[in-house]
Design a protein around this nucleic acid. Sequence first.
RNA 1: GAGUCUAUAGCUCAGUUGGUUAGAGCGCUUCGUUGACAUCGAAGAGGUCAGAGGUUCGAGUCCUCUUAGACUCACCA
Length: 768
Amino acid sequence: MDKAYNSSQEGHIYDQWLESGAFTPVVPKNPKVAKIKDKPFSIILPLPNANDPMHMGHALFTIQDILVRYHRMLGQPTLWLPGGDHAGIETQFVFEKRLAKEGKSRFDFDRQTLYQMIWDFVEDNRKLNQFQMKKLGFSMDWTRYHYSLEPAIVDNVLATFKKLYHDGLVYRDEKIVNYCTRCGTAFSNLEVDHKTVDSHLWYIKYGPITVATTRPETMLGDTAIAVNPKDKRYKDLIGKTITLPLVNKEIPVIGEDSIDIEFGTGAVKVTPSHSPEDYDMAKKHNLEFVRIFDYDGKSNNNVPEKYRGFFPKQVRQMVVDDLTAAGLMEKIENYSHEVGHCYRCGNPIEPITAPQWYVKIAPLAKPAIEAAKTGQLKFFPNRFKKTYITWMENIRDWNISRQIVWGPRIPAWYCLDCNPDIKLNFLDKNKNIVSDFYRNTKNKYSFEEINNGLQSLVAPVGTDFTVEHLDNCSKCNSVNLIQETDTFDTWFLSGQWPLSTLGFNTADPSKSSPDFDYFYPTTIMDTLWDILFFWVARMTMFGLYLTGDVPFKTVHLHSKVTDAKGQKMSKSKGNVINPLDMTEKYGTDALRMSLVYGIAPASDFVVSEDKIRAQRNFVNKIWNASRFVEMLIDRLHEKNPDLKISELKSPLSKGDLEGFSQADKDILEKLNKIIISTTKNLESYHFGQASENLYQFFWHEFCDVYIENAKDRGEETIPILLTVLKASLKLLHPFIPFVTETVYQNLKEKFNFKKELLISSSWPINEN
RNA sequence: GAGUCUAUAGCUCAGUUGGUUAGAGCGCUUCGUUGACAUCGAAGAGGUCAGAGGUUCGAGUCCUCUUAGACUCACCA
């Protein structure tokens, strides 16, 4: 044995595990029946973005590996199912940044071409991501790996959409949406970051009424003034009209109870197309909708000519200048308030009315709330149960459509000839962008030319559609049927991940795979709590909706990785520690151990190079302790070639301790305790405590006390040394699999350990 | 605006259902070893467990309030 542990052997060890089949559980012939008897243990990996290079967040999958290795050693059929996510908007955003470097944009390509380009881009990275997870020793069943854009996965997702549609849970509507003009797509509420912005409150004179607003530029789209009916100042004006400045248009004054008399002037300008509150008021009072900013973020034909074609910021300046010049700006106050920003690119969100696809969520949320309340779905730590229920109870309908190409297209087809008001954006055969209504393009371009060059379309709400691709329109028999260009919110697909990957068949559940029967519901879902709503909540709803059962029995949530100062790792802060660099430098085991050592459940993971180095020393300590035990035994063996070398028969049974010294009894008793506490800590997700106790036991009890003591003694220590060492290797294996397996392999032949891999050996059991 | 979490040694953090002298890693002091160990071992210094009050035979651990941070959610102008 070398003087120090050499972590460069890790790859070889991993291959041994892989080849042994240890990662791949066998599903019994009759899975539904066997499930009760065998007690399978299963975890679905929170699918990493396939284009994402490894970072510390991925290294936290160590938690799952610990659980999986532990349960595998308990003898349970254990599945850890890996996967990769196409990650819709995330990936398209990254890809568009690359395009920008080449001086190109998404508008230079038709959607098919763009899709293929992104596909190729992701394929390259996908393999790298898998390689990196292997490097960290994750004992995933690669034979069951799935990628989110596999045909079978996508088919299942489309089938779910159809089922939702037929159950009356899918609808189209033109409401205010969170629209990012840079990304060119709408987002769900969850994808909006609210940031405090220092701005102003502009007081603008609208004839007899002065309004206070944070967005003067949207005044061009005002269609009413709202005041509180109890407000004496304006009471008499309700029902009358006033003239909208700059636009010179008559708009009504309406009474609205929700208006705060105390705030500003007590009068609010109402812009139904660019404010969620105003939208609601407009619906209630039947006001006109005037959308002044379009999907490209610029002002459109609905504003006076001089303001057309500008971004909101520019329009704001022009409007403020003009109002000031006209003497209509009463005053400007400093004011800070919350403004929604795109979580992806950071651009301010423009609330805009746009036709989108929605899922009626209340019927899905109800059973998901029940499951949490009844304990069918458990949370660790338990406090997240409340967070989850509160969110679920206040949930709003889910906008599932995204105006991007990277993802499965919504399976809905429109007949162009029945719906000439569909707006089409496409590249003609000369690669020129055409953007017009079908009624204007139908005589100039063939359907093929439109469809081949298609970038996007906008079908007004109410447009007839089918969720099957028919050859002819059932009404007019036209063959010009065009598919919706909106794609699904990524979470619509990943929300069905446990079902899709285990082979659940939405269209015909009776045809689901044995894997589904055996492993569903999975045992634990372990993930960062920041995707509790995005992902965990959606999976629960889909799982219950489609199968009647939760997708996992327990949600284990943990926090983020921070540096030694407790700051979140980010590129901009420059405090990122690359896990792969650390594995190169200190070995994978050291990194893994440092991630869990001394970390309280659900708190931040504090990682520093110092900590990793300390754990590297521990790994080396194990190596050397083993080396020393081997040497000690060899030495005794040389003196006495007939020496019988064996472990204790029944290591922890007290009856066998007759004739042993106090030191022997002490260490065995402590071993006994550590077996009990490690088991208990693993069962209750106290990984930090478990690893810390093992560290203390191995180093400061076994090495410092027992081995030191054994130096002065003879052959009678051999059974104890071997027993404690072997049990320690097993207990430590889930945390630091490589060194323990390596040592085990070195020792097993020499000391008649069973010829097996440590990964497949059995968990030490306390027999007291 | 609603909610959640955190506050323990110089630094980063453990301390699972309340129970004997409050722990680890790194750092610091002294000594030993360098023939298992990237050194390692032995001994030690260092904490009124944010503050105040309460429950209890007993509280770092439970309750209330205060202070200071962090985070999440949220259509108010």
